[in-house]
Design a protein around this nucleic acid. Structure first.
Lengths: 154, 154
DNA sequence: GCATGTTTTCAACGATGCCTGAAACAAGTG
DNA sequence: CACTTGTTTCAGGCATCGTTGAAAACATGC
């Protein structure tokens, strides 16, 4: 099943968006296509065919998606080909994992304790306070997010 | 005033952290150094000297910082040299500007309305709901952040 | 086991982007 | 006006990374 013009346009929109933040073009196209392809599960060969990418590129970039937790493999018994799909709740998972990066920022700030400048030490401490604040606020925020989500899909 | 070993180590720590997310090495080193240098205001020539970077590199990467709003120029009257410093509240400003990116994600999701897949349309709509949620939650979160900040520095 | 189609790996090419060094430019000072 | 100091620009070198194409490795149904 070939892509319609509208589908192609959307994949391009998504790809343009994420490449602006430094993503590889193929990585972003695969993401966009997995958001709207039908059915939602696709093989590597199909993705390569649909998007006009080489098998090697699809293999590499798809693995990047899997490692990031955005995409998962689905095994269909009776069929030897591996299928891939956007992981249910993928977008929420991304937001959840943000907490780790917040903590890392906090660690970075605390690592500066030994070299705190006398002049405007808040250049460092501000970052620590900020990380602490978000580390505190993030879990309840995620809970509200989950509640909202389950309200939408009961 | 040359850097101490500890200062050098911290600049390296910061640089390593941000280059992991795709930043240029010099960009990240300048950021780390502007966090702890003394005094907080430095000229391009000083930064180049301190970090062992070429004048051209400092000019380019420093401008990137200025355009991102992390660094600002300070004019000292009677002195013809431009001085640069980490902008007060720089870290908070970064978090505030996050709202724009959230909105952009929401737009991206809504752009998919025309190509919503019948099979698991939540692959697209979930992203929209998420963006809406954060667009709603972000301003009050920022307010709490500001309140917290002013409590620390009255 | 064998055959078939799928997936991974890897060398090579190409593009992109960082960094430098030098030259041009600006701006005060003697 | 030269001199000094500071900043910007830009061509070129270098390294990195994405992509391809093909071959090797793999997995599964027969």
């Amino acid at each position: 099943m070939p892509m319609t013009d509208a589908q192609h346009a959307y994949v391009d929109r998504v790809a343009t968006f994420f490449t602006m933040f430094g993503s590889a073009r193929a990585w972003a196209e695969i993401l966009g296509w997995l958001m709207i392809c039908e059915p939602a599960e696709r093989t590597q060969a199909e993705i390569a065919e649909d998007l006009g990418l080489s098998a090697g590129t699809v293999s590499t970039q798809l693995r990047a998606h899997v490692q990031l937790g955005m995409v998962e493999q689905v095994r269909v018994r009776g069929d030897r080909t591996q299928r891939y799909r956007l992981r249910p709740g993928a977008w929420f998972a991304v937001m959840s994992s943000e907490l780790e990066r917040i903590r890392a920022l906090g660690d970075l700030a605390r690592a500066g304790d030994g070299v705190l400048p006398r002049d405007r030490p808040e250049r460092v401490t501000e970052l620590g306070d900020l990380a602490d604040f978000f580390a505190r606020e993030w879990p309840p925020l995620l809970e509200r997010m989950t509640a909202e989500r389950e309200k939408g899909t009961p």
